[in-house]
Design a protein around this nucleic acid. Structure first.
Length: 671
RNA sequence: GCCGCUGUAGCUCAGUGGUAGAGCGCGUCAUUGGUAAUGACGAGGCCGGGAGUUCAAUUCUCCCCAGCGGCACCA
């Protein structure tokens, strides 16, 4: 007999081998039907898996949504693999987990039919529904490693066999059958589980296969490329539809689409991965730049500007040429050739490289003149324009570009100032993100495999960041505090700020890194109180990350409806009849004088047309002026997102617009 | 860089082995109007680039380039 303790504290004595499903049935028929899995001593268990020792047991139903979704998605993944193998014999299966919104399965299509395409998805979906409707029981079995390897070898499942062979010698492996023992279509996968009791527990109308993509076996570029089939999966059709609606919403917010509709910027292949900012887009940029300048002035930074090109030897010394050359653009020293007029690379040409980062140049500025401990902390800031030769497949709108401008600064400080400087940065970043209406999580990326510096330096650098975050009161769940092993930069661990936008997506933007490597490599020093030379610590930090990316995030976050202070056009003065134009011109003059970005629309078009066009153009306020307003000295304001209009005097409108058009830091409040 | 898909007018997209169409936008004219599209007419295209098959290629084949979805990468 074993003892099962339930969440309410009650305990039951049952035979060893009793399953959670049996216990649910003993409690009541309703629960027996609803229970889909169990949590046994904190671990997820199949409802049909025998219990063999004293345990704490909690039954899981669809009400435990996170667990239920995870189970369902994992099952969908298995059904997907089963369907693909049923339809395309010879397909090899590998691995198929649940994801944040669904599932995927990586398969190797048989050589005869080549990689799967989206055209194959409808047939696979239909087969999946068939499997679900067949309500095949899912049976867990424990196999020896040797038996399983034999099975995979016999079936020609190269990837599964490789995986099993790498597991520890004596490990017992779990497999799941889909279908009972005498079912000729029974299908087997090696899997940790857990799974639902049968395929029929899934809702056949609660999933959709969404796309296919290439993925490397075990995530390594050197390995075979598999076909990954993605699906989204839910507990019921309603949830699925809600998700599909959210995806549509995200598509509507796509900054590439809005960027074109709002005439903010464009890109073209002659400057692949680089942005042509149009007047409207660059207006947003200028506002952000001004905002950031005020913030750094406030924070005690000094703004500088450093060269775009430096001799490659400089990059060798900083270590970038060794670790980062594949992402750098190198430029030969070209001299004109007098003979035929064509440019020619000199034999002994010096090679220059475009800067991919600003840090070495900032150290060079620091090194000019002798620095005393009294000069520290020295905070050097730059709107640093960097070029990185990103892989073609990585480029994505404004989010991943080859030329971008960072709000980059390096703080040179003494060892004893590090924690305080990081803490101050946390406060500054907090203020900035809140001004844009973001919430955020903070994570600490720890030492990567490829790295510079001693273990002791890394220990210290990591601990400092931990301490500073603790002092800033952010090392807790409210801030999603988490440590990420192996994800730091090659020269330093980094704190990362992950913003959550208006529809719940997250974006990594801000960062601060404590670096002792670069000051050493470039021999930066200051004179201490003791008269001796000391190494400063260098903190790399950014809040927006890059202007390009941050603007992309803002466009999606606000769905193009920028707050008034950032809106490229803050107001349009639109007349109904041309008789009102002269009066409208006086209104324009007043708004312009007050610094409002206002445009007039005196075109020979209906007011309906004008209102529609500027609404679609996401102008925050339309000031409509007809005969009445002209006679009464008023304006009729229609605000984006609202149906009605407000009639007010020009001065009232001016006061309102002026208030809304001022940046949040100048208003002393949040937007 | 890897896998898959896509590339036709400024934009969104139809279409065809016999050198092209719609809507929006743009231009002209009429219309002076009251809060999300006034009407008529008109001008726009090397059908991504190159090669091949063919009497004939925007259409079929191959190679490039770019974009999109992922993977890998993101110092």
């Amino acid at each position: 007999m074993i003892k099962i303790t339930l969440p309410d504290g009650s305990a039951r004595e049952v035979e060893s081998g009793t399953t959670p499903g049996d216990i649910a049935a003993a409690i009541g028929p309703g629960l027996a039907k609803a229970a889909i899995a169990a949590r046994v001593d904190g671990e997820l268990y199949d409802i049909m898996r025998p219990l063999e020792r004293d345990v704490q047991l909690a039954l899981i139903t669809a009400r435990d949504e996170a667990d239920a979704l995870e189970l369902a998605r994992h099952d969908f993944a298995h059904v997907l693999a089963e369907a693909v193998q049923a339809l395309f014999p010879g397909t090899q299966i590998t691995f198929g987990p649940a994801t944040d919104d669904g599932f995927y399965y990586d398969v190797m299509a048989p050589a005869s039919c080549g990689p799967f395409t989206t055209d194959d998805l409808p047939a696979i979906e239909a087969k999946m529904r068939e499997i679900i409707r067949a309500d095949k029981p899912l049976r867990r079995e424990v196999w020896s490693r040797a038996d399983l390897i034999a099975k995979w070898d016999a079936d020609g499942e190269v990837f599964k066999a490789e995986w099993a062979k790498e597991l520890p010698e004596n490990e017992e492996l779990t497999v799941y059958w889909s279908g009972d023992a005498n079912d000729p279509t029974a299908w087997l996968d090696m899997c940790r589980g857990p799974h639902l009791a049968s395929t029929g527990k899934l809702d056949p109308d609660a999933f959709k296969l969404t796309r296919v993509a290439g993925a490397y076996w075990r995530g390594d570029q050197k390995n075979a490329q598999l076909t990954r089939i993605y699906g989204t999966g839910w507990l019921n059709k309603k949830q699925l539809n809600a998700h599909l609606t959210m995806l549509e919403e995200a598509a509507k917010r796509d900054h590439r689409r809005l960027g074109q509709e709002m005439d903010l910027f464009h890109m073209q292949h002659e400057a692949q991965g680089s942005v042509f900012w149009h007047p409207h887009g660059f207006t947003i940029w200028r506002e952000l730049e001004s905002y950031m300048r005020r913030a750094i002035d406030d924070g005690g930074y000094n703004e500088i500007k450093t060269p775009q090109l430096m001799d490659v030897r400089q990059w060798e010394q900083s270590g970038h040429w060794g670790k980062y050359a594949e992402n750098m653009f190198a430029v030969p020293d070209i001299v004109p050739d007098g003979e035929d007029g064509s440019p020619k690379i000199a034999e002994d040409a010096a090679w220059m490289a475009m800067k991919p980062m600003n840090c070495p140049a900032h150290v060079l500025v620091f090194k000019q003149g002798i620095k005393s401990y009294r000069d520290l902390p020295l905070r050097l800031y730059e709107h640093g324009c960097c070029h990185r030769n990103e892989p073609h497949g990585a480029l994505h709108g404004l989010m991943r570009v080859r030329q971008f401008t960072q709000d980059d600064a390096h703080i040179f400080c003494r060892e004893d100032q590090v924690v305080e400087e990081v803490r101050k940065f946390c406060a500054l970043a907090d203020r900035v993100y809140k001004d844009f209406g973001f919430t955020y999580h903070v994570k600490l990326a720890l030492r990567p495999e490829k790295r510079f510096g001693s273990e002791a330096d890394w220990d210290k650098a990591e601990q400092e960041l931990r301490d500073a975050v603790a002092e800033a009161g952010m090392a807790n769940d409210d801030y999603g505090w988490e440590e990420l092993p192996g994800e730091g930069a090659f020269y330093a661990p980094k704190l990362e700020w992950h913003l959550t936008d208006a529809i719940g997506r997250t974006w990594q933007v801000g960062t601060i890194q404590g670096d002792r490597v670069l000051p050493e490599r470039l021999d930066a020093s200051y004179v201490g109180e003791d008269g001796g030379r000391h190494r400063p610590v260098m903190l790399h930090r950014a809040i927006f990350g890059s202007y390009e990316r941050f603007i992309g995030i803002l466009i999606e976050h606000y769905a193009g409806r920028m707050p008034v202070w950032l809106a490229p056009v803050q107001a349009v003065v639109a007349t109904i009849v041309s008789d009102a134009d002269p009066y409208a011109e006086t209104v324009m003059a007043k708004l312009k004088a007050a610094g409002i970005r206002v445009q007039s629309d005196y075109r020979n078009e209906s007011i309906n047309y004008k209102v529609r066009e500027h609404s679609v153009g996401k102008v925050p306020h339309i000031l409509v002026i007809g005969k009445r307003e002209a006679e009464e000295g008023k304006v009729a304001i229609r605000t984006l997102g609202s149906q009605g209009q407000r009639i007010m005097t020009v001065d009232e409108a001016l006061a309102m617009l002026t208030e809304e058009a001022s940046a949040p830091d100048l208003r002393g409040g949040m937007i």
